[in-house]
Design a protein around this nucleic acid. Structure first.
Lengths: 228, 228
DNA sequence: AATTCAAAAACTTTCGAAAATCCTTATTGC
DNA sequence: GCAATAAGGATTTTCGAAAGTTTTTGAATT
């Protein structure tokens, strides 16, 4: 793996998880220190992330971590619902046994991690399995473009969820695992309309919960974190 | 404007227009000569284009212009239909007078250019106006994410259309301008179902026409060009 | 004739410094 | 005292060369 690829993965990781908070200037001297490499691979990574809208760039004034905003979150979630609804319908239509088995296993792994508490709890392991589950639902849709957009939007919305995951022990009055279970069941029953309705509901509940946190806290993730 | 931005625009332009044909290795020494700059700005541009899937990259083996394939074209068009249908519905719901006026003026400009022949004909001016018209239709959808995906997919599908535009004087038995006119009319009448149906039909006719050309010719654009 | 291996060439990747630009601060002129 | 301006420092951008990797070439061997 080249240094530029390491830089890309490290920066993406640190931005999505909020270690590099929204709006933070990404100065090359500092990044060079942080990641232990020269300017060239860092600039290449920053340009890739700029194309993915995770960082903003201004000519001759460098890069910053892209800002978050409630408006952008609503747009991202609405677009996710549109794209994932179609992808879920297509997957239900086209999915084979391997697809169904993938949903069952990723849901099982997600539930296992979600049930762990105390020292065993691991937000990042949970997050990885959450991603894997949602990806598994759509994975039979047959469209590489759709899957790419799913990944872009997942990363964008993940940034809004992280502060909440870090602060709140448990979202208010919500059984997220039950929602995942019902969604998986409807999908495996090939009941497309029900599955799509549950998916939409799942995302709308999430965005409503996130909105409260981000409304008061502005777009700085550290401030958002302090709310919980 | 920095050199890296010039490199990005130049490369994107040349790739979409097929001057740098699919599969072509993008060697730094050659590009450095072609665009008159050093390696650094070129590599930055290539990384951005890689993130946009217009170029492919392999560790330590450099960059190439991304390949075309009939399968990918079908995926891109199907995804376009999905996303643009929703965006068109939203625009029809939300669009104001400025939006409607933008459709009228971009259609008029497109028709003007389309009617020009001989020395006045200009494929690239036509193409720019075609893009502007399709963008105007969706521009009131209110979703920055949707518009970004529209632009990505437009660029991806444009690559398939270029060889046909360059070779064929006029697509077989099709009045493309009439299709645009009907689409604009249904949209301005706020008849969402009719407009979406016309949009879908417009793209499916296009993909059918392109398929013939690309099937025989493989993915090399020069070969495709020779067919016309 | 085909295969293997080593050396050379081609090319990508990375670094460090130079050039260019932006931002801050101090100074000048009013 | 205050605005305009210039110097200095910080930062980004670009270049040219060095380092590292892959591919090609060609000779030696089977």
């Amino acid at each position: 793996m080249t240094l530029a690829e390491k830089a890309y993965e490290g920066l993406r990781h640190d931005i999505i998880r909020g270690e590099l908070p929204p709006g933070r200037p990404l100065r090359l001297a500092e990044l060079s220190e942080r990641y232990g490499m020269g300017f060239s691979p860092l600039r290449e990574a920053l340009n890739r992330l700029h194309a993915e809208r995770l960082v903003t760039a201004e000519s001759l004034r460098g890069f910053r971590v892209a800002l978050l905003s409630v408006e952008e979150m609503h747009d991202a979630v609405a677009t996710r619902i549109m794209i994932e609804s179609e992808a879920l319908r297509a997957s239900i239509r086209l999915g084979d046994d391997a697809w169904a088995a993938g949903i069952v296993s990723s849901l099982y792994a997600l539930n296992l991690q979600a049930s762990r508490t105390g020292a065993e709890a691991d937000i990042w392991a949970l997050e990885a399995r959450h991603y894997a589950f949602h990806r598994a639902l759509l994975s039979a849709c047959g469209s590489a473009w759709t899957m790419e957009f799913f990944e872009r939007l997942y990363a964008a919305t993940e940034r809004y969820r992280i502060p909440v995951l870090l602060s709140a022990g448990r979202p208010m009055g919500r059984d997220v695992q039950a929602e995942h279970g019902a969604l998986a069941e409807a999908t495996l029953d090939r009941d497309a309309e029900k599955a799509v309705a549950l998916l939409k509901d799942h995302y709308e509940k999430t965005v409503a919960a996130l909105e409260e946190v981000h409304r008061g806290a502005g777009s700085d993730s550290r401030a958002a974190k302090a709310v919980g």
